[in-house]
Structure formats: C-alpha cells, structure tokens
Simulated assay, not measured.
Amino acid sequence: METFESLVRAEFAPGNTYLNTASNGLLPARTVDAVQAAVRMRAEGRPLGSLYDDVETVRAAFARIAGVSTERVALGTSVAEYGALIAAALPAGAEVLTAEADFASLVNPFHMRGDLKVRAVPLERLAESVRPETALVAVSAVQSADGRLADLAAVREAARAHGARIYVDASQSVGWLPLDAGAHDFVAAVGFKWVLGPHGNTFFVAPEDFGELTPLLAGWVAGEVPWDSCYGPVQELAHSVRRFDVSPALFTYAGLRASLSLVEELGIDAIHAHDVGLADRFRTGLASLGRTPVPSPGSAIVSVPGLGHRQPELSEAGIEVSNRAGNLRAAFHLYNTAADVDRLLDVLSS
C-alpha cells in the first residue's frame, strides 16, 4: 500500500528547497506527462475530444474537493473575471465589505464599477463590520500576504443576519485547507497554486439559482449543448452554473486532471496536517531565533516581518520564498519536508 510519502516522492523531485507554493505550486510528474501528451496530440493533428472530456473530469474532481455538486461549478481563467460578474450584478450604491489589503484580483472589480461603496476594514473586524446596508462581503479565506485565516463562520453568520451575500477567494486555501464551498454564495479559486495545476484555470462556485448573475462572458461553451451553440446567439444557456464557463485552455485541463487525481489520492485532511505541521515547525524555530511571525495560527503560510530583504540571498542558496511588503513569506506544501524547514532556519540564523 502506498503511503503519503511514497506517493509524493514518486511525483516530485525539486532541484531546490521550494517554499513558494503561495506563488506557484510545483507540477507533479503525472501532470507534466499529461500536458506533454496533450501537446503531442495537437502537434500530430489527432482528434482533441478526450481533452474536452478532461474539462468535465476536472469539474467533477473540484466539486468533490469543494463539497458541492458539479451543477454549481463553472470553469474560467481568472478570479477577476468572476469578481466582475458579481460586481455587475450589484445595484448602484450597494456596499461591498472587504478586508484591508486583500488580494487585488478579489477586490479590484468592485472598485472598477465606480458606483459601489467599497469599504475595507481589518480582517479581524470583518464579521463585526457587517451592517444592514452591506450587500456583499468579499474576502480571501487565507490572506496572500501573510497567511492569516479569515473567520468564515463568523463572517457567514453576520452576513446572513443582515441579508448580505458572501464571496470567498479560496486561491490560497483550496488544496490544503478543507473547503465547504456550499456554505458560501460565491467561491473562486485559481488552480495553479495549492492544487498543483498549470496556469490558465479558475474554479467558480455559484448558487443553483445563479445569484442574480448575468453570464456576460458567455460563449459557445455556455450553451446547454455546447456543440450546438457555435453559431449565432446561444439559444439555450446551460441549465447549471456551467453557463458561466469560459472557453477552456485544453492543455491546462489535461494537466489539472492529473493534479487533482493526486490531491484526491492523498486527501485534503492528510495534506492539511502535513502542511500545517511544517509551518508550526518553522514558527517554533523562528522563536528560537528571536523572530515573531505575523500571527496566523493554523495556516500553511508563515510571514516574517523584517526578513523580506533576504529573499535574494535565500534564492542564491537554493531556497525559494517570497518577499511580500518587506516580509519573508514561506508556504509549506505536500512536497516539503522537515529538512526543508530546518534548512531555511539554518540559513536565516547565519
């Protein structure tokens, strides 16, 4: 029987100490093989029908991971495009509540409307800041800059009490943090970070009643029968949230099919325990160095104030992390080990 470690070691052999999944996840070997096979199909002029099948396999796999039905999942290319659909559905003057310094792809579409009231508050005060005039609360489940976790249960309770919708960006959480997408109105997440896919995909979860959204980006794939919707206006939009699909990058979905298969084989609970265990090991080591990270209990991302300037030096030493606003950001994922943590601590101590 294969173990967590044996499955991981069969898929990854990084040439450095890679602690930067919050920027980009590493591609499993099976994903590289799948993308290369798809490229060969295209180069040789073979029928691409199986690659369209990959799109539906990916939709179903993400639905299982997110805890929703496939009918609630759309597939696009960016978080911002789905934020724009939500923004377009809001009436003029509606209030959108966000967390201060949340990721631009989440918050910017609401600012671009120009006639919405966008209010930003500290993440820790998000739930208590919901008020009767709040129409939407938009927040990342895990903050990109420093790994802090939003109290989504408290936000959800406050939003429901005031009749507000909830929009969650799970880009920095899906793949390591258990996700109950059905508990929220809208969820978006990219596939190139913690679920280890190639660039070019975003998952989107919307209510079965579509939540007042208009499929402004609808093309032929948004039809109930896509291949019957290639010419002229789409006569019958998909009866499911698939009406918000954007034409798929087929090579990306060939890779995602393979990546999500690995995530499901390992299991989100096991990945969560592994990732947070390594992050906690790093936090403990930082204390011995006299360093205090940004408080982010339970997160796989650790951000250390005042050490961001050491990112180039660490990269030279073969350790990949990020510099975010002067903070050193380390992100621990399934292919990392205790030795990776100890190596980072050792270089930081020198």
Rank of each mutant, 00 (worst) to 15 (best):
A273E: 14
F210H: 05
I319W: 03
F282P: 00
G326P: 06
S296H: 02
T70N: 02
S23W: 02
I86R: 11
G255H: 04
R125D: 12
V39Q: 15
V195E: 09
D146T: 09
A104E: 08
A254N: 06
R30P: 03
E81N: 07
R310M: 14
V321C: 14
A60H: 07
A74P: 00
R281E: 13
V241R: 04
G76E: 11
D269L: 12
A10M: 03
A330S: 14
L213M: 13
A206P: 08
T3D: 07
T134E: 06
G25R: 07
L213Q: 10
S144E: 13
A135R: 15
E236R: 13
A127W: 01
P297H: 03
V142D: 06
V205H: 04
W176V: 01
H111Q: 10
A99G: 09
R131H: 08
L256A: 07
L177Y: 03
G200H: 14
L19H: 00
P305A: 04
A127G: 06
D54C: 10
G93V: 07
W220D: 02
V205S: 04
R131T: 15
I301L: 03
V8L: 01
N24W: 11
V341K: 00
A238P: 06
P312L: 07
A22D: 13
L97G: 07
E56A: 08
T284H: 11
E157R: 14
L136F: 11
G255K: 05
L216A: 13
L196Y: 12
E95H: 06
C230G: 11
V304L: 02
A74Y: 02
A270G: 07
R148K: 05
L75G: 00
E44Q: 15
T98A: 08
Y231M: 00
L262W: 12
V139M: 02
D209R: 10
P122K: 14
L126F: 00
H111T: 08
T31R: 03
S69I: 00
Y18N: 02
T252A: 04
G147P: 06
S6T: 15
G308N: 03
T134V: 01
V347C: 04
A120K: 12
L213S: 10
S140M: 04
A10P: 00
W227V: 09
I271A: 05
A331W: 06
A270D: 12
H239K: 15
L90Y: 11
C230K: 15
V155D: 03
L237V: 02
I166Y: 11
A34S: 13
E208D: 15
F332Y: 11
H272M: 06
A159G: 06
L348P: 02
T214F: 10
A88M: 08
S69M: 02
D185Q: 01
G326Y: 04
P248N: 00
S144A: 13
E212S: 14
L213Y: 13
G67W: 08
G223R: 05
F203T: 11
A249F: 14
R148Q: 10
V302F: 00
S261R: 15
N20W: 02
F12V: 07
R46C: 11
L27C: 05
V142G: 05
E157V: 09
D102L: 07
V341S: 01
L7S: 09
R281W: 02
E313F: 10
A287N: 04
P305H: 05
R30Y: 00
F186P: 01
Y335F: 07
L256G: 09
K117Y: 08
W194P: 05
H333E: 13
L19R: 01
A218Y: 10
A141S: 14
R329F: 01
I65G: 03
P91Q: 12
